[in-house]
């Protein structure tokens, strides 16, 4: 299949092409999926290096399962979000007690205009507050409000009911709001959001 056609092909079709030996399909899938996997992993773990390892491992599992992929059974992204979350959970359990404070600082520390700094401070404050949430609440809030997935897909990823997703998101957001409102006063955020 020509590259321009592959760029618009669904993930599932590209995975089948890859399993059949197509040389380009993996590149299109990598470019399309890795940013999402990495973002999810980094938000769940709060650690760039570990998130990169998880992203590579999740994609490796995708490459290996490709020949057994059954069209129409599940979306590739749904499967990948689930695998990524499970890998993060494994690492989080191992790391608990070691301390996530050892995570390296974000790479982009360039000074910018005041507005940019406030955005950066908000993003960092959000990540800190997410890190303090229980695992399942954090996962549900990230998928709902940052990855912007629908509750039915989140339910499929987390293998729970839609009602349970709604409950996790609501509880997670209440905890985030309480955590961030205290920091909002400390850091002097303007209330323009």
């Amino acid at each position: 299949m020509p590259l321009d056609e592959q760029m618009s092909a669904p993930d599932e079709a590209l995975l089948v092409l890859y399993a059949n030996g197509d040389a380009v399909a993996a590149r299109v899938l990598t470019a399309r999926l890795v940013p999402r996997v990495l973002a999810q992993a980094q938000r769940l773990l709060g650690n760039r290096a570990e998130a990169e390892d998880v992203a590579q491992e999740a994609m490796l599992r995708l490459w290996k399962i490709a020949p057994e992929w059954r069209q129409g059974e599940a979306k590739v992204t749904t499967w990948l979000y689930r695998v990524t979350a499970n890998l993060c959970t494994d690492r989080f359990r191992k790391a608990r007690g070691v301390g996530l404070d050892e995570a390296p600082e974000p790479e982009d520390e360039r000074p910018g205009p005041a507005e940019g700094l406030q955005e950066r401070a908000r993003a960092d404050a959000l990540q800190d507050a997410l890190d303090r949430l229980p695992d399942r609440q954090r996962e549900a809030v990230i998928l709902r409000h940052i990855e912007e997935l629908g509750n039915p897909e989140i339910a499929e990823i987390m293998e729970i009911s839609v009602e349970a997703v709604e409950s996790l998101v609501a509880r997670g957001k209440r905890a985030l709001a309480a955590d961030l409102s205290a920091r909002r006063d400390d850091l002097g955020y303007t209330d323009d959001g």
């Binding site: 990598t30 890795v34 940013p35 992203a55 940052i146």
Partner: peptide, 23 residues
Amino acid sequence: LKAFFDAGKAARPEPGDALMARI
């Protein structure tokens, strides 16, 4: 929380070339 979520979305980590090459 909208302003925080918007900031979080904008600060989406981008994969580096080395990671893409490994994958």
